[in-house]
Design a protein around this nucleic acid. Structure first.
Lengths: 143, 143
DNA sequence: GAGCGAATGCAAATGATTCTTATTTAGGTC
DNA sequence: GACCTAAATAAGAATCATTTGCATTCGCTC
């Protein structure tokens, strides 16, 4: 509850910094994002938002969420599936996906070491800046 | 050249094993897949294939490539971007993506070690079966 | 309160993919 | 080689997620 309010305030604050106008539509979207599941689709947000703001247009939700990605308030979540998911967790983290039920858990890693097989990996002098780890398996529920 | 023929023969062989019929359309698709870039979209294959088989329908390419995934002749490649990419490289490997030009290199890893931050990662008793590593950075060309 | 540019709603456009249906065909059988 | 059947195909309609164009509305600054 308190945490959600904090999240909401953070969103409002950041959005002001970026020069975004505080429309009621945007406020509803912000609040829903600060309250709900991290790995949301536009439609999930839209369905919830329209309950309290019935004349809301899906296009507005699309526009706002993409804009939030541009301004760093959200990130795209690259998971398989038909529609884009967004991540409200801006901390560096990775994901575990259950291949049976599809549930997604956030995973935080203290360290990652990997060793290239140089004979087959032809990165040339490419510079690696970040890595994104997807763990796959079976969650506790599905075991 | 020889290698492409090998790939093609492998595809034809495997497809026979799976009970797929050798239609001319399928042969064209197989050959193109054995010749071209590993990380293709359906449309890339379709555009090439229609040159030599003009009455080919895109739906046929979609159906065939999905079927090849089902029978293990191709895998889905989870990259960002608007359309599905397929990977003809069936060896276990990972990917490097250049964030500037989008080029994708295959990466082979001898080992990967990672350490969970248990205090924040709530996997419960989930069982991790595989991991998929995406390296991001800048390729040699773009540096 | 006026003015301006940003934001919105709506509906049409787009793009990728899937589905439907009538027709054709590969591959086994005699 | 003719025949049969299930699988495969072409063509186009349907679907689904997303984007765009445009006329209108509305925060925000002065």
């Amino acid at each position: 509850m308190t945490e959600n309010n904090d999240n909401l305030e953070k969103l409002v604050g950041l959005s002001k910094e970026k020069g975004l106008k505080l429309t009621p539509q945007r406020m509803v979207i912000f609040r829903i994002l600060s309250e709900c599941n991290q790995h949301v689709t536009v439609d999930e947000v839209y369905q919830r938002a329209r309950v309290e703001y019935p004349m809301l247009s899906p296009a507005t939700v699309y526009r706002n969420m993409e804009q939030m990605v541009d301004t760093g308030l959200l990130t795209h979540l690259e998971l398989s599936g038909t529609s884009m998911r967004y991540d409200t967790n801006l901390d560096e983290h990775h994901h575990f996906v259950c291949t049976k039920c599809g549930v997604v858990f956030d995973v935080y890693l203290d360290k990652v070491n990997y060793k290239l097989d140089e004979s087959r990996s032809h990165l040339g002098n490419a510079k690696v800046n970040s890595l994104d780890l997807h763990l796959q398996g079976t969650c506790g529920e599905c075991l």
